[in-house]
Design a protein around this nucleic acid. Structure first.
Lengths: 228, 228
DNA sequence: ACTAAAATTTAGATTAATCTAAATTTTAGT
DNA sequence: ACTAAAATTTAGATTAATCTAAATTTTAGT
């Protein structure tokens, strides 16, 4: 007699994927564990809901959970997160390069497309786009194996007066910020000269395309640049 | 004092969309109402689950429901269905023409892509593909307004001996059938000559590309052709 | 017209994801 | 070291979609 024990190999749900992605992004910043409230904020949900989900993700082996102290992605969880990010960023490139989306329009749609599960789809999309290395916001796209290296970038707020830099990415990808950059002719690749930092509020005067503009500290803290 | 009465304008769920699509496809064949068991079969669920969903769809105005007698899509429900079909078929064209999918691989992925909600996405995709009129299985693609005309096609099983026809579509879109066609060099656009119908089992001898093959009635009932 | 079989619906339960309110644990300032 | 505030978890409830088993209605063959 045979007894089949079904280990209930449960598929990962869409919501679980989104939690894992959020935990990945939150964990990137520091070395500490990611805490419940931060996840709740990112997921626009309540802390108690996060606790429930955290337990589930922990049981499924995507995170290490220390009660009252927070979570960290396991190797497996990190791999899930990176795969979703790969899909998200490839779709963003597709939307901008092939479907005439602007860089402030892509995020919302990509949030949905990133959950489509088909290895062939994403590998073929990657090839169709000629294996792009960066998405429209300057973020690196992981390859099939999950490898990607971020470029050596700093924030505009940390720029040295007198030097020249190239814009290579944005930290804030909100539509309102990206439209601000569009409105001031700042795009990825744009060369900016750091002219002057106002001591009072740390706003920065920069030169680009034959003009100079003054950007606030808030703006400077959300634009990535690189020495040229 | 103001009292805000929230009318709970509930978004249509993914599952609801799939039920509406199934009802649309089932309703196409005949003029009668679509019955519960047929929906259950199409949705791979139980009749009791269908009854629950039917009530919900009826309350939301997507279907007319006559208890114990079945359902019909309302004008609104039909428009939802056609919009999903438009998305499904456009994605299928994209997968085959741009991402090297074969016609037997597209259905499953398109089942997921069809639920992405972005008008801009689908209109731009339509333009990117140069407004295709038919999907890889020969099915017509509705335009933005939901208009589409099916071509004047018949089944191979209804062909007249001695005449020549062009293959224009498939009724069965299962992978195993499409691979059978591939294996016998039958593609959309292929010209077939109807040579002989075997009285015993209604199998049909057809000529194509300098050879003749014998196809079963089952095959003949799933291949759409058109007089040339 | 009757009635057994088929089709459908109802009743009550389950799972995933969420919530509020209460309880518990940790943190940070003295 | 104590303790109030902040953070987190627990308990119990809700919603969408599903299920099984029982009840009800329709259908189809005499």
């Amino acid at each position: 007699m045979f007894i089949f024990v079904v280990h209930s190999i449960k598929m990962i749900t869409l919501t679980e994927e989104n939690y894992i992605k959020a935990i990945y992004h939150l964990g990137k910043q520091g070395l500490e564990m990611v805490n419940t409230n931060a996840i709740a904020r990112a997921m626009k949900t309540k802390a108690s809901s996060v606790t429930d989900m955290i337990k589930k993700l922990s049981e499924k082996g995507y995170i290490d959970y220390k009660k009252y102290h927070g979570v960290n992605l396991t190797r497996n969880g990190r791999s899930v997160a990176i795969n979703i990010i790969r899909k998200h960023r490839l779709w963003e490139v597709f939307l901008v390069e092939k479907l005439n989306f602007t860089w402030d329009e892509v995020h919302e749609v990509a949030e949905h497309l990133e959950h489509i599960r088909s290895e062939k789809l994403i590998d073929e999309l990657d090839a169709f786009l000629e294996f792009p290395k960066y998405d429209p916001h300057g973020d690196p796209i992981p390859d099939k194996q999950g490898n990607f290296k971020s470029i050596n970038k700093i924030l505009l707020s940390q720029a040295v007066i007198g030097k020249s830099y190239k814009c290579v990415g944005v930290k804030d990808t909100s539509s309102v910020f990206l439209k601000y950059l569009d409105g001031n002719s700042i795009a990825l690749g744009t060369i900016v000269d750091i002219i002057y930092r106002e001591p009072y509020d740390s706003s920065i005067k920069i030169g680009l395309n034959n003009t100079t503009i003054l950007v606030s500290l808030n703006v400077a803290k959300n634009l990535f640049i690189k020495e040229v």
